[in-house]
């Protein structure tokens, strides 16, 4: 019995590590299309890890969560983003404010901080997934870092969505997921957010002939 649990725990840790690796990959990725693909992979890994948790603990509502994740984060949102990129014809390289190696170094620092901060909480937790809490926190921070360092609008949205992935992972790992109502609400929020941001892309481009959000400095109230 204990062997299966430890095996599933290992699987969960594997997927969590994959998610973290993908987060780093996203931080380093310069191309928009690849970035969206990486985001889709991250969604898939998240879905699989949730599925493993569901199988090993028997929490039925986690199956729903996993399905939702697959549908929304691995399929629907990447598809929307792909379509947006094609419609907007933005296949340029991603520009970042800080160069990529520095960003990676900062990211490593953040992971250390995340592990340091999450350690006492994981000690208190009794779930089999407790080791992944630190990873989840790190994913949130890395996604945040990506939002800060990117200057174009689409990578920022991807960063925003990746942050939600991290939060979802944190919820699964700390308490076996949030109540279904909350999860559905968040899923809907993310979807609506992505659609609204999509509309905004067109507006921004209309206004500035570019998706570079540095232009928005001009909107400041003087």
């Amino acid at each position: 019995m204990s062997a299966t649990i430890s095996f599933s725990a290992q699987l969960i840790n594997l997927f969590a590590a994959l998610i973290l690796l993908l987060a780093f990959a996203m931080l380093a990725q310069r191309r928009v299309m690849q970035l969206i693909n990486l985001f889709a992979y991250q969604g898939l890994a998240l879905c699989l890890s949730t599925l493993v948790v569901a199988v090993s603990t028997g929490q039925t509502h986690l199956y729903w969560s996993a399905g939702l994740t697959l549908l929304l984060k691995a399929l629907l949102l990447p598809w929307i983003l792909h379509r947006l990129v094609r419609r907007l014809q933005v296949k340029w390289d991603v520009e970042s404010l800080i160069n990529i190696p520095t960003t990676m170094l900062v990211g490593i620092g953040l992971v250390i901080v995340a592990f340091n901060v999450a350690h006492p909480i994981s000690e208190l937790s009794s779930t089999i997934t407790r080791g992944t809490l630190a990873i989840a926190l790190a994913v949130v921070m890395l996604a945040f870092l990506m939002m800060i360092t990117r200057t174009k609008a689409i990578p920022q949205v991807v960063g925003f969505l990746a942050m939600e992935n991290g939060l979802f992972l944190a919820a699964t790992s700390a308490t076996y997921g949030m109540p279904m109502v909350v999860e559905l609400g968040i899923a809907l929020d993310v979807l609506v957010g992505a659609i609204i941001l999509g509309v905004f892309f067109f507006q921004i481009r209309e206004q500035f002939d570019s998706l570079d959000i540095r232009h928005m400095e001009r909107l400041k109230d003087n």
């Binding site: 006492p120 909480i121 921070m141 945040f144 939002m147 920022q156 928005m216 400095e217």
Partner: peptide, 25 residues
Amino acid sequence: QGGRIAVYLLYSFLTLLGLLLVARP
């Protein structure tokens, strides 16, 4: 209020980081 979204995000990020470090159990 500099008008740069990256800077605004940095504000929230640093606040989050600071709170995490300060409020550590």
